[in-house]
Design a protein around this nucleic acid. Structure first.
Lengths: 234, 234
DNA sequence: CGCCTTTTTGAGCGTATTCAACATACGTGG
DNA sequence: CCACGTATGTTGAATACGCTCAAAAAGGCG
């Protein structure tokens, strides 16, 4: 449905050794001689918003390290609705279940322009157990992320949840950040699209966020934090 | 605050080899000669409801395999409130972060009478990497559990959430199951204690659950499923 | 028995939902 | 390039739902 084709930039055998976010990614612990063992290509891909990395229940052939951008993990509910159960960013790994399970457990979709690094499961298998510690800590990060979803994005009023989300979509140092579509905001916060919309437009009115371009905003971080923590009148 | 003392039954060196839920626990993959390597005692403990297994931020010295019962993982929010971010049951491992992180990331508390198996982190370290695969899949289970919290317990109306929770607290085969206190119901579902209370009492009135003892109920599974999935008038 | 905690119920209010209408953006073909 | 159609975003009004605050009822426990 939201299937934009992948306009992939293909760098072929990527040199992970000089990756800018090397300390964050799966290979952080590997020495350069370990890289000799990798014979399979690791693709480096740019994804426009809305592109699916993989679909739920599909055969899990690879992991994806997120080098830049934001990826949502969605799961379908019994009633046909869906819910975003996790939000992944730089350094996170999407499709980690590939190391354990034959099928993907979510549909992973880019929310903003996103750069990922595709890692065939065989590469991981070949590097185990050197990779084990790092892999373990990625699992750990995954758990923390989804618990953060519960704690921050599914707790409190719609305004509070939205404020927390806006603080999460980019690190504080990032001036301008990109919003994604209203439906995704709703699914992420457990509220309706309309409510998400109202809250965003209210935030704009109160100058908690300022639109500096098409779906690009600047955030008033202290003010958002005040709302997030509930120390605010309305 | 909710600090009941641990009335622990101490079995000393527990024979994991003949554990009834052996296939579910961390040692599932180990051969019997591996057990010779375990020199540290593994305690087998019964916990009354309300007992804390460990506290958030405390130094993480052990993992706990849950042999029976239910354990909540709670995290404190900025405003002093707290939220239950995961619900663990038979075969799950509480305090998995001990393998990665120096401190516990939640407070783990038994919701019902619970039997756990305490595993000092050194035991795990000594058995790595044989234990690695199993450990990995426990992480995997942990992720699934907290995503289930988002998907099922933080989505939909209070009635739907409660119905889903009641279906989760024990497998369908279990006739009688124990309720925990109303505050916990609230924190788990992201609703207030009062709402939790009203919903439960409404479920009783409509005979979706029947009280067969002090906080012990029998469930009408098909009816609860109907509510859980939203195919219900009121 | 009386005190304390937990649970239950009530009434009024505020927030989020629903359903609908309308606006805007986007892509396609005329 | 504009006109049209569809998808997405925005706003409104009425309603339903869950929250707050308060008070009463029902267990524990000394």
């Amino acid at each position: 449905m939201r299937e934009t084709e992948i306009r992939a930039a293909w760098y072929g055998l990527e040199s992970c050794e000089k990756c800018a976010i090397r300390h964050l990614v799966l290979f952080a612990d590997l020495t350069s001689k370990d890289f000799g063992v990798i014979h399979l290509p690791i693709e480096d891909i740019w994804l426009p918003p809305g592109t699916a990395l993989y679909q739920q229940d599909q055969s899990a052939e690879a992991l994806f390290t997120i080098r830049e951008g934001l990826v949502k993990l969605e799961q379908y509910l019994a009633d046909g609705n869906y819910r975003i159960v996790s939000l992944l960013g730089q350094g996170d790994v999407a499709g980690l279940e590939a190391t354990i399970s034959p099928h993907y457990e979510h549909t992973a979709v880019a929310l903003v322009p996103t750069k990922v690094c595709r890692l065939p499961r065989e590469v991981v298998a070949r590097l185990t157990p050197q990779l084990n510690r790092q892999l373990m800590s990625k699992w750990h990060g995954m758990v923390q992320r989804s618990q953060q979803c519960v704690r921050e994005l599914s707790t409190g009023s719609a305004r509070q949840r939205m404020a927390r989300l806006l603080l999460q979509i980019a690190p504080p140092s990032v001036e301008h950040c990109r919003l994604f579509n209203r439906e995704d905001f709703g699914a992420l916060l457990g509220i309706t699209m309309e409510t998400a919309c109202r809250v965003i437009s209210d935030f704009k009115k109160k100058a908690l966020i300022t639109e500096v371009g098409k779906n690009i905003i600047r955030r008033d971080l202290p003010a958002l934090q005040a709302i997030a923590s509930g120390e605010c009148p309305t």
